[in-house]
């Protein structure tokens, strides 16, 4: 009973923390745009909480480079489970246009496991909303909840 309620809560209240992992700002701004009146992701109970210790979903934008890879890992480690990671934008998914640059390690999945990839350069706010919804679907299946 309580377990069910908690699962319900998990679906209804994914708090996100956003980490800019060397993005060009395009995706960051689109993530922020999601909070604004036009898109308003708080409809889904999503709060941009800013603190990994409170967050359920990690939104990562941008390429991983040698300096921020341990930061990314640190933030991921500080999130209490259950948690999900969404890589946003071409850079977050694979390193995008910067894959060959000397200081770029690659996509987010080089460092931490990624649950959902949101393509785009930059990813549209709609796509980011889709991404969070997809992550929730994934959580639902993991929890064995029927849609």
């Amino acid at each position: 009973m309580l377990g069910n309620l908690i699962n319900q809560g998990r679906i209804k209240s994914p708090w996100v923390v956003h980490f800019d992992c060397g993005s060009c700002n395009g995706c960051d701004i689109e993530v922020l745009a999601c909070l604004t009146p036009i898109y308003d992701i708080e409809r889904f109970g999503i709060l941009n909480i800013g603190n990994p210790k409170h967050a359920d979903v990690l939104l990562v934008t941008g390429t991983v480079n040698h300096r921020n890879k341990h930061v990314l890992k640190n933030i991921y480690d500080q999130m209490p489970g259950p948690k999900a990671v969404i890589a946003i934008g071409a850079c977050g998914c694979s390193g995008g246009v910067f894959r060959e640059a000397y200081n770029v390690v690659g996509g987010v999945d080089k460092v931490i496991p990624v649950d959902v990839y949101v393509p785009g350069c930059p990813a549209r706010p709609e796509a980011i909303i889709d991404g969070v919804v997809a992550a929730l679907e994934k959580v639902k299946t993991l929890l064995g909840m029927t849609a």
């Binding site: 980490f19 603190n51 990994p52 210790k53 341990h70 930061v71 990314l72 640190n74 500080q78």
Partner: peptide, 20 residues
């Protein structure tokens, strides 16, 4: 127990929490 929040730069050296 986890390390304290340090904006992602947390680092414990010799048991002393801190950041890079």
């Amino acid at each position: 127990c986890s390390q304290p929040y340090m904006c992602g730069e947390q680092q414990t050296v010799d048991g002393k929490p801190g950041f890079l």
